[in-house]
Design a protein around this nucleic acid. Structure first.
Lengths: 142, 142
DNA sequence: TGTAGTTGTAACTGTTTTGGTTACAACTAA
DNA sequence: TTAGTTGTAACCAAAACAGTTACAACTACA
């Protein structure tokens, strides 16, 4: 099981838009950097648009940020591309036998712990902003 | 995307074996409590056996714990049933364009953060032992 | 020594997700 | 008007998941 690469592709897209301000970032241009199909890029960008992060220009193509980089965390992107449903990282087996002491109580007991685990993971994502990522990249690129 | 219910099924199995010490926990008996097919149970139990957590009796059926409950954490079980590969919770898109500044560096930068996020999640699982879970259940059951 | 009951495993099914592709209508700046 | 782009539908192949049937191999016990 892996969390879909839609998430890292979305980060890639936002980085390109943020760093290459002078380039018209069309789906084709971005697809070449990500190394995938332009349609994949358009689908992901559509989700970023729905989340209010970017505006996409239809005729001439390209996109721009709608929010300051500091206000976009990795968690925001993760949510925007819907790679993991809220509170449902772990699939708990459904319909355990309610006539069994274990079956009747396991869902409630595990849910608490598993939500906590998911939350710990998502908190790390929430602590990283696109601002920080762009800074790291700017230094690398020089 | 969801982490396979193999994980919570494995916890369910270990709880049954731990709590119903006087019952011969065959795959059929357990399947009735989990509410699934006995073959599913046998497959998961096979993994718990491979991890050295239980011993399974072939002829008469049933299984017993091989480790003290304190020495089995939820992380141990999660690893035993192989629901998420080590350090690969997040799928990073492969082959980004190395001729692009973003494409050439994104993997390295993201990997660090995503490993940290995965680790935070798994740490929570590591903090819960089967001993604690059994205690919670014993109180509920009374 | 049979035999009943159980495990281990192979082989198959249907469903969902993922990543990718082709095709094309709708849009817009030049 | 048109060239280039977006948005979307409609596919495809591969993998993962959960489930099921079938059956050989095993073992306690009558």
């Amino acid at each position: 099981m892996k969390i879909s690469s839609r998430f890292t592709i979305a980060v890639h897209i936002l980085l390109l838009i943020s760093i290459e301000r002078n380039t018209r970032c069309t789906s084709e241009y971005i697809a070449d950097s990500v190394n995938t199909n332009p349609v994949i890029i358009r689908k992901v960008m559509g989700k970023l648009k729905n989340a209010g992060m970017i505006i996409i220009h239809r005729g001439p193509g390209g996109a721009e940020l709608l929010k300051p980089l500091v206000q976009i965390t990795l968690l925001d992107i993760y949510r925007a591309v819907e790679v993991v449903e809220e509170g449902e990282l772990f699939q708990i087996h459904n319909d355990p036998n309610p006539n069994c002491a274990v079956g009747a109580n396991i869902q409630g007991v595990l849910e608490l712990i598993l939500l906590k685990a998911q939350d710990a993971m998502e908190t790390i994502l929430d602590e990283v902003t696109m601002e920080e990522l762009v800074t790291v990249f700017s230094k690398k690129i020089g």
